[in-house]
Design a protein around this nucleic acid. Sequence first.
DNA 1: GTTATCTGACAATAAGGATTGTCAATTCTG
DNA 2: CAGAATTGACAATCCTTATTGTCAGATAAC
Lengths: 218, 218
Amino acid sequence: MARVNRLFMASSRKARLYGGMDAEERRTERRLKLIDAAIEVYGEVGYRSATVKAICEAAELTERYFYESFANSEALLIAAYNHVVGHLHEEMTAAAAAAGDDAEARLHAALTLYFTRLKEHPKPARVFLLEISGISPAVDAVKLDAGRVFSDILVPPVLDAKHGDRGAAATLLSTGMVGAVISIALRWVSKQYPQTVEDVVAIAASFCRVALTDLRLR
Amino acid sequence: MARVNRLFMASSRKARLYGGMDAEERRTERRLKLIDAAIEVYGEVGYRSATVKAICEAAELTERYFYESFANSEALLIAAYNHVVGHLHEEMTAAAAAAGDDAEARLHAALTLYFTRLKEHPKPARVFLLEISGISPAVDAVKLDAGRVFSDILVPPVLDAKHGDRGAAATLLSTGMVGAVISIALRWVSKQYPQTVEDVVAIAASFCRVALTDLRLR
DNA sequence: GTTATCTGACAATAAGGATTGTCAATTCTG
DNA sequence: CAGAATTGACAATCCTTATTGTCAGATAAC
């Protein structure tokens, strides 16, 4: 337990260095290596067949460090998912913001970024499009939340929470929109990108437009 | 091996009867019981935690009969999926046909049937909405095919295969449409049907309309 | 250089479930 | 009824992987 060390340290003294890194830095570095390795391995063989051992080998670490950072495989899946998706969502948000105020332009920008990244990184793509379904309630919850965020980026929630009564219907619209975009993405990826990013974005956008206009009319 | 018996039979002689049933009848009956039990158990605990033993108990059969009808758990999942979805698709097709020639009316009829059944049978719903993702390439293929059928029912393929060049884009439209409908269904089911069937159908229909009109414009 | 800490390799353990095999009881055929 | 086929219960085996534990060697601090 690293905690024991703390007892001997004044509040801000650093732990012993290894490889120039403090104990906590080393730990987070290992954690990151595990997440990267997990994405790699999931991309190769899928989450279900990805063993702890295989991931550790890919990360050039031993099992011990797996359990140092994660309680179990599922925790790593969630961490990997959040890692990839969190970053992607940040970028999408930024892209949307950079596109100005026009809803249509923002939508186009966010989707373009989404599909561009998807094409650039096929393996992470697999993690967050496919591997994440139906593993466990905890994982489903994570996915659900990511979907909500995704939706809010594409079509900022003007009415979502406000119109209590209509809120539920709005949720279904968002859900449908995200489902359409993700399904399109999944197919596009698994067929190895037969269309240009532009073309796919155009198709995805038409589904988003449904949600956009329907939400306004309500 | 039941085959050995055949050697002693003239071409059409029946096998020994048990419980009034011929060997093959008994076998198919057991197969069906296993499929029903599987749907039940998947609905309770999910495919991943559904053990062969539990399914056999639910079917009131022993493991031996599991392996008589299925090579492994995955085979049973596929059979259960096809069983449920095949039936559903038949009904949807019939409903669409009964609704006449108007595309909009047919769409409405098919969707109404879909969501109605979904509400009537929560457990099968779980099997074919959720459990089926990312198990294995074989299972994914089955799902993909079901999606195609589903799409063809909702929006009959006027242009799909014909316009070779545009075919790929049409596929993405269908994919998006089915993805939207299924995502909506999934959410609706998991929130325990907060809206009326009518309302959900209306929302789902608006996504289908995108595909419908876009496919015509191409 | 000595000592405490950290690391890597790997053994040991544990657990869960699939798949196969055995055998006695049951049900049919003649 | 006698004999063969069929069934049900359940044990035995086999595998796979997660998880924990051990230990010798490497690394940094003093």
